[in-house]
């Protein structure tokens, strides 16, 4: 059985590298996208099992990506975890409003993130 495929959307290179490495270490296959437009394209073509979505993205921000995904019936079921900056409570609330299933604040508490991923994948 191949590894569960996740899409990590994050514009910061260092953070993206670190998180993707960490996800691989945890047994996932991590696709990456560095902006919202590429993220949407990747979700459509690759159909990842789950999306980790940074909200502050170039080209197309995370909220727009989330709304776009939810608007397409064939993609709407894709679980999305918003990655939001710490101390930005309104970002978090807006992410949930836009249709994200859950959120994780940065700096990421990785074990907690793995739990959230597991919970959403079980559904």
């Amino acid at each position: 059985m191949s590894a569960v495929q996740l899409l990590l959307v994050e514009d910061n290179e260092l953070n993206r590298d670190m998180l993707s490495r960490r996800l691989k270490r945890a047994g996932f296959e991590a696709l990456i996208a560095e902006d919202g437009a590429k993220a949407l394209a990747s979700i459509e073509s690759e159909r990842p099992a789950l999306v980790l979505l940074d909200m502050n993205l170039p080209v197309m921000d995370g909220w727009s990506v989330c709304r776009a995904v939810r608007a397409k019936p064939e993609l709407a079921h894709t679980p999305i975890i918003a990655l939001t900056a710490h101390a930005m409570a309104e970002d978090r609330d807006r992410a949930l409003e836009a249709g994200c299933d859950d959120y994780a604040t940065k700096p990421i508490d990785f074990p907690a993130l793995l739990e959230k991923i597991a919970r959403l994948l079980e559904r």
Partner: peptide, 21 residues
């Protein structure tokens, strides 16, 4: 500060990975 926090997050992530590995 936003950028610094992002980088701090990456640094912390690697440190956490290292403490596990």
């Amino acid at each position: 500060n936003h950028e610094l926090r992002n980088l701090a997050g990456a640094l912390r992530g690697y440190a956490e990975m290292l403490s596990e590995s």
